[in-house]
Amino acid sequence: MQDTLVRAIGAYVNIRCMAAVTTHLVEEARRRHDTYPTATVALGRALTGGILLGGLLMGDERVNLQINGRGPLRSIVVDADAYGHVRGFVRHPHTQMPLREGKISVKEAIGAGTLQVLKIQTNQKEPYRGIVPLVSGEIAKDLTAYLVNSEQVPSAVALGVYIEKDTRVAASGGFIVQALPGAQDREIAIVEENIAALPPCSEMILNGLGPRDIIARVMEGITIKFLEEKEISFQCRCSKDRVIRIMIALGPEEIRDILVKEGEAKASCEFCKQNYVVTGDELKQLLEEIEAMPESPEP
């Protein structure tokens, strides 16, 4: 079944909710990065959080999450857009922590640190930047703290990843619910009670619930208007053309040096682990094209 994101709003109340099932995209990230279980859960929660925050964007906006901690994972970086595409990596993918009461402790793997959120618009020179200290290290509560403190929107975030004994991702997903201006205390209390009674997101997904079902559980007692359902996926923006543009930016002297020392240029994308090779013949052609370019006039 394809991973999906669903957006909904209360038909008569100012509360919105989004839920996503991200099992396949998190499994793809695990496979690409060869993550051990602790790193898989941490990266999976961050990817799911990125997808959910991306669902709040419009047009060509992007959101970038950077979790930096003092624990063995060190950092997690996630990049998502408004179209349901997400990519990400963890600095030390082979991190594995001892189980605590039978559960993976992402908090210990990340340690004390910060969550930085960048919102990037193509027509803006500087992105919006919000930084908050990690309040939990389990990622969901940290995203909640960011939304409440930096964006001033009362919110609740839940994220979950379930790993099989063979380390494959069996279930992954989450939700965001937000009280918009005009939401009444009674309506907020209903949602809070619903959330308190919910099992973990990964358990609901293991039991066959999809995003619409999760939203129905979160918003039980409130009439729901579903707004959108879309497919989501792990998708990177890297390409060989981007690598070649980087080579051009290095300049002819650096390209000549690579030709002499290496004979070809190699690059690997941190986000998706795709490897690229620019052959010696391609480098020579680049040099010819650069040298044929007219010189820029002096100012």
Results as ranks from 00 to 15, higher is better:
S75R: 12
I76A: 04
I76V: 13
V77A: 10
V78M: 06
D79E: 12
D79Y: 06
A80T: 11
D81S: 08
Y83N: 09
G84Q: 05
V86K: 02
R87G: 03
R87W: 00
V90S: 07
R91V: 02
R91S: 13
H92S: 05
H92K: 04
T95F: 01
L99K: 03
R100V: 14
S105M: 01
K107N: 03
K107P: 00
A112M: 11
A112C: 02
L115G: 07
V117S: 09
V117P: 12
L118N: 13
I120A: 03
Q121L: 09
T122A: 03
Q124E: 12
Q124K: 12
E126A: 06
P127G: 01
P133I: 08
G137H: 07
K141P: 06
L143E: 08
L143S: 05
T144E: 10
T144K: 04
E151P: 00
E151F: 01
E151G: 02
Q152A: 03
V157E: 04
V157R: 00
A158L: 13
A158Q: 13
L159W: 08
L159M: 08
G160Y: 04
G160H: 02
G160P: 07
V161S: 01
Y162P: 03
K165P: 00
K165A: 10
D166M: 13
V169F: 07
V169G: 02
A170C: 00
A171G: 09
S172A: 15
F175T: 14
V177Q: 08
V177D: 11
Q178G: 09
L180Q: 15
L180E: 13
L180T: 13
G182Y: 13
Q184W: 09
R186Y: 15
R186G: 07
E187Q: 13
I188T: 14
I188L: 15
I188F: 15
A189I: 06
I190M: 15
V191L: 09
E193A: 14
N194M: 12
I195K: 06
A196I: 02
A197E: 14
L198V: 10
P200I: 00
C201I: 15
E203D: 12
G210D: 08
G210E: 07
I214W: 09
A216M: 11
A216R: 14
R217A: 11
